[in-house]
Nucleic acid binder design. Structure first.
Lengths: 124, 124
DNA sequence: TCAATGCTTCAACTTCTGTTGAACGGTTGC
DNA sequence: GCAACCGTTCAACAGAAGTTGAAGCATTGA
C-alpha cells in the first residue's frame, strides 16, 4: 500500500460516525447490515448516514449490495488489514519491536540517517 | 485505546503533508528533525508546516523539544503502535486471521446476528 | 546592544466537510 | 396500477480545515 491509497482510508476512519459504522459492520461479520439497521443502531438520520456510507464505500472500506429494496453493507476486512500492515511498516520500518524502546537503544540503527543530516545536534 | 483517542490520531495521519511528515520523522529515528529540515525535505513554507506540526503534536503523535533557536520534532512511535493495535482489534476483533477469509467460512459465527434480522436474504 | 536567524502566531481568505430537509428512483405488496 | 417503503441524491447552509503573508518572540553571534 502507498500513501495515496492509505490517506482516503484514514480519512474514512477519522470521524466518529464512520469509525462507529465500520466497527459495527466489522462486528456483524460477513452478513453485514442493511442501511436502516445501521441508522437505527447509530441513531442517525438516513441522509446523514447515507453520506458517510457512500464516502466509506468510495474509499473501498465498505462493500454494498442491493437486496430487494434494501442496501446491505459489509466491512472490507482485507483492506483494513492492508492498512494496518502499512501503518505497522510506517511506524517502525517493519520492526514493531523498535517502537516503544528508550532512545539510547536505537543508536546503532540510526547512524546512517544521522550522518546524512547537516550536523545539527542537541547540546549533548 | 478508545475511539475518542484514536480519532485525533487518524485525523492527524489523514493528510498527505502530515503523513509524509510522520514518515520522515519515523525514519529519522530517535534524533528526530528540526522544523527547518522537515520544511525543506517536504518543500513546504514554514507557516504551513508549523500549522501541521502543531496539530500532530497536539494529537500526541509528535514530541517537540526546544534546542537553542531550533525546534526538534520526534515521532511518538509508542502511540503509533497503540493505534495499530487498536485498529487490529477493530478490524477483526483481535483475530487478524479472520479478516480475509471467504464469506462462507464465517457462517457459524454469524448465526446469532442473522437470526436477529427479519429474514431478508440474497436470492441465492 | 543589535542585526540575523528560526520558528510560531495571528488574521484573512479559500476550500473542504458535515448536516439537514425536500425531492427523487427503485422495489414491494395490495 | 398505486400506495408504502427504503435509501439515495440534491441544494443550501454552517462550521472546520488548510493556506498564505505579515508580524511577533526567542535565541544566536558579532
Amino acid at each position: 500500500m502507498d500513501p495515496a491509497t492509505a490517506i482516503p482510508l484514514l480519512e474514512s476512519l477519522a470521524s466518529a460516525i464512520r469509525l462507529d459504522a465500520y466497527r459495527l459492520l466489522m462486528r456483524s461479520g460477513p452478513d453485514g447490515m442493511v442501511a436502516g439497521e445501521i441508522a437505527s443502531a447509530l441513531g442517525l438520520p438516513p441522509t446523514n448516514l447515507s453520506f458517510h456510507l457512500k464516502a466509506m464505500t468510495h474509499a473501498g472500506l465498505l462493500a454494498v449490495e442491493q437486496e430487494g429494496r434494501f442496501q446491505r453493507y459489509r466491512a472490507n476486512l482485507a483492506l483494513m488489514q492492508e492498512l494496518v500492515a502499512y501503518l505497522t511498516e510506517e511506524c517502525c520500518g517493519g520492526n514493531p519491536e523498535l517502537c516503544a524502546i528508550p532512545r539510547a537503544a536505537g543508536r546503532a540503527k540510526r547512524t546512517a540517517i544521522a550522518s546524512a543530516r547537516t550536523g545539527l545536534r542537541r547540546s549533548s
